[in-house]
């Protein structure tokens, strides 16, 4: 039987796979993750998020009831289909962006990710939204789905925590404590979402999405979303 959830990268994961994934989801991989806050900047600006506890609550809801779970469903769907069927999944992923900046966030990071994959791993993938890009690239490069998805969702958590460290601001230690505290949720989501069909996509992070719309008209901002 499969091993329990907490051993995300179990000892039987090929060391080469581990390091390829470490490279893909390293902050050095040029997707520009540092420039997107997923609407967090608007919430900090309005004083709605000002503590590590408030950030963790926002982050947990975004992971479980917002883009986190949906991205895993898109990544997994993209991994399972032939290249000819990617366009339909990608169109749905783009269409579900709730604001122009959230669309930019996923399309821009996905485009940059694909450019690097094509150049470095000699692939010929088209531009795709970020979760679809990662699913398609993992399949093209023969990487296993589950560790790829766990690294993806953890990368999403890390990037937004890094944004919170700069915005709220949080201490570096507080940031790492928040990531550690939310890691079990990442595992739990991977355990349930990777087999979920596209029909089960859905979210309820209404105010988090509204914040990403409000960010568009914010007077002073550091982030592109």
């Amino acid at each position: 039987m499969a091993t329990a959830a907490p051993t995300a990268m179990s000892t039987d994961t090929d060391p080469a796979v581990m390091l390829t994934l470490a490279q893909w989801f390293s902050p050095a991989f040029p997707i520009g993750a540092f420039s997107y806050s997923h609407g967090l900047e608007a919430l900090v600006d309005r004083g709605e998020i000002g503590t590590v506890a408030q950030f963790r609550d926002w982050m947990a809801h975004v992971l479980e009831h917002g883009a986190g779970r949906n991205d895993l469903i898109f990544l997994s769907a993209a991994y399972r289909v032939d290249r000819s069927e990617l366009a339909g999944i990608d169109a749905l992923a783009r269409a579900m962006a709730p604001s122009s900046e959230r669309l930019l966030e996923t399309v821009d990071q996905g485009g940059s990710f694909i450019r690097t994959i094509n150049a470095v791993w000699s692939q010929g993938l088209p531009p795709l939204s970020y979760p679809v890009a990662v699913g398609a690239a993992a399949r093209a490069c023969d990487l296993p789905l589950e560790p790829t998805a766990r690294m993806y969702i953890h990368g999403f958590l890390s990037a937004l925590t890094s944004a919170a460290i700069r915005l709220v601001p949080l201490g570096q230690t507080e940031g790492q404590q928040a990531i550690l505290a939310l890691t079990p949720l990442c595992h739990q989501l991977c355990d349930s979402a990777l087999d979920a069909p596209l029909d089960s996509l859905g979210s309820s992070t209404f105010l988090a999405d509204i914040a990403s719309m409000q960010h568009e008209t914010q007077y002073s901002r550091m982030f592109r979303s």
Partner: peptide
């Protein structure tokens, strides 16, 4: 024919 918007509320 091209998908331009999708929303899925799930509660």
């Amino acid at each position: 024919g091209a998908l331009v918007f999708a929303d899925a509320t799930r509660l």
